[in-house]
Design a protein around this nucleic acid. Sequence first.
RNA 1: GGGCGAUUGGCUCAGCUGGUUAGAGCGCACGGUUCACAUCCGUGAGGUCACUGGUUCGAAUCCAGUAUCGCCCACCA
Length: 895
Amino acid sequence: MTTPTTTRELPPRYDAAVVEPAIYERWLASGAFTPSEEPPDGAERFVVIMPPPNVTGALHNGHAVFVTLEDTMVRYHRMRGDDTLWLPGVDHASIAAQFVLDRIIGEEGETRQSLGRERYLERMWRFMDETRGVIGRQMHRLGASADWSRERFTMDPFSARAVRVTFKRLWDAGLAYRGEALVNWCPRCRTTISDLENVHREETGTLWTVRYHLLGEDGAADPDAWISVATTRPETILGDTAVAVHPDDDRYRDLVGRVAMIPIVNRRVPIVADEAVELEFGTGAVKITPAHDFDDYELGKRHGLPLVNVLDEDARVNEVGGDLAGRDRYDARREVLARLAAAGDLEGERPHQMVVGRCDRCGTVVEPRLSIQWFVRTRPLADRALASVREGRTRIIPQRFEKVYAQWMENIHDWAVGRQLWWGHRIPAWYCPDGHVTVSDAEDGPDACAACGRPAAELTQETDIFDTWFSSGLWPFSTLGWPDDTPDYRRFYPTSVMETGYDIIFFWVARMMMLGLFCTDVEPFHTVYLHGIVRGEGGVKMSKTKGNVVDPLEVVDQIGADALRFALVSGTSPGNDQRLTAAKLDGARNFTNKLWNASRFVLGARPAPLSEPEGEPSLAERWIASRLADAQARATRQLDELDMGGYAAAAYEFAWGDFCDWFIEMAKVELRREDATPGERSRTWLASAHGLAGTLRIVHPLMPFVTEAAWSLLHEAEPRATAGQPLLIAARWHAGGPADREAEEDMAGLIALIRALRNLRTETGMAPGEWREVAAAPSDASAAAMLERGRAYVEALAHARPLRVLRPGDGVAPPHGAAATTSPLGAAWFMTADASEDRAAHRRRAQAEHLERGIKRLRDLLANQAFVNGAPAQVVQRERARLADLEAQLRQLGD
RNA sequence: GGGCGAUUGGCUCAGCUGGUUAGAGCGCACGGUUCACAUCCGUGAGGUCACUGGUUCGAAUCCAGUAUCGCCCACCA
């Protein structure tokens, strides 16, 4: 970019698609994303580990949200001079990745089975190499100022080692174990899934009533005696090992202890009594299938019932089903029903609202399945993780999620960590022919069986891999080199803020807390910041099938990353969902444009040559410096408190409201004053340049590109304005400064007067651009002085020229019929109003009524003894002053 | 069955520890073509802050309850 001397050399439109990538390259080349070799002396630390996106697809709005929030935090802290690190990475997403790859190889005419484990994994690595860069490049486009030199992957050797070491430690501590249990099984993904991946939904099913005949004295089923049971899953009849009734149920009291005959498989099973049975539900008698239902499993344990598994890993009936073997579970269900009906044992059926668990990934109905699995004993881990939050060592924003977190931790079950998948970290357990288990954290596995010393060659490694969240749970420290005591680990751990979506608080945050404390004995982060979900128009969750997806990459191409970022942060609060609408994006684009144009103005207004500044700062110059200091202080506080929406609003209000709407307009008055000396013009321009620099600093963390582009031009135009710092990303943050009370008060009065005059023009139908003579009757000497100081501004911004300031004091009132108004500075009126008298009078009456209403309200309030006595003196004082002011205004309005 | 959140002008949302006449953007109405920006400028209309009760000198804000919507957790066939 070239040095601008006039606006003509600046593009009138900010072309994000061209400018932003170029700026990102400059940042990369400058090394600004990477922390210095040594931490700056006495610097605070600010470390964010990026939630690793799945490498399976393109960037979506969820990513855009976290990139924006984290980048904003990180840029702010970097500008503050903190020892800042934002470490990026990607997740191998075991089950999700396999789901995607299976589809891809399916299109190539292959299947997981046809390729086999080895070739499948080779294909997966190829897929990863192809897609891994895509996400990174998309993040560049969003402006992510992450330290790419430290980028990590949950399948890299560092993660792999951390996984092995952690598991070994868990095993040694007795917190990892292998055992038989009923687990959630997805027949389509052919793997165990955790409770969290088993999503429950209410669905309408069918409740069938089926007769189980009782065993007669002759040992055969009695055709005339039966017990009716209700079931939603008739196919599991094949695995029934009991019928249960409630012990207090008089209907069945006599049957307890007798034997029922299970149809089709002709199994003899006991009728047992158990309090878990609901008297009211169905027939009051329940068929018990311990191998295919979690409730039945528990009940079976209580009564010592056998476990009969009737389904294979594809959820097809196994050999137990006799001639039904090989049938799919739903196919088998139909057949079972048909046979029951044929035998006259199907009593009835009715629609039934029930809760069905489905696989989070593929939507298949989850099958409880009996198998031998690896578990992590979570209770002790959860207790520590719970205490950390309870005792405030880690806080969650918004705070209400601490309760959600606590409830989950309190009711936690052991974590089934094994997955019967291929893509992921293989569980580092080895089995020897004698049944011993050896867990090793060595890269090449154990040398020998830990129990009997058999050589490694005779051991076989577990084929199961870890739940993908196991490696994710180690992310805050595996990325920094743990278990080694690396310089990065020492310098950057524990981290500062974990920013992520509230939808993965259990999946991820909880696991990081548990494993972080277990592995490192310290909370992995002091703050958890949870953002909400991005929804579409009407508050609907975005989905491709609904066609309401806003593609962040398209948005970035069209209106720029800054606009998207602003839209994603403004008007949001942590933990709450937001709607990303076209209108919101338009507004954000307009703001980007506004920033660009304000910059164009300042740069184009530079006097050439610039001379030595002369004279005292003008009122406008003092005012904008004071407003800037205030905005800086607000932005600083909000960013420190992680009130990102508040920060966005403060930045917006200052930039657009204070700087553009008022300051620039007043600066124009001074820059274009005919009697201004070159030194005075230079002084005003420098103040504008400093104002612009301050604006860019404040906005930069959220909208880095347009601010950096403008900064770069400003730096070339006037290095004094940029403190000699050519790159805004590396500039120092300004946290505020002293307020100029006098300038603020003056300007507040003048702004009120200008607004009142503009309003008067519109209300009385005066042409807005026409110059009019205005008289102002200041309420007192200080108001008169204020009017003199701001005369030029009032004249220019209200088209009120000449402005005649009358002598202060009582008795000066607008002439009858004049278009008049009041403000805290006193009355003012158009002297040459040709507006209709009716309108002027109407306008005056309206103003008077308005004042009277306010006066009445305040008089009533102050007449209330309870208020005067009860409220703080300060509040009462303020109301008294207000009343006096309104009364004075009314008096001055005259008539 | 538990828990949580939301309910503020037509729309989308701010309103912290209770204290002016409840704000913003969009939309709407009216008016604006000279030198940053029509992706703009100015002015204005529009709200019983879901409802009921309570605490208080004072409540959108605190408490209790109700309603509607949404979310999370939970093993009822």
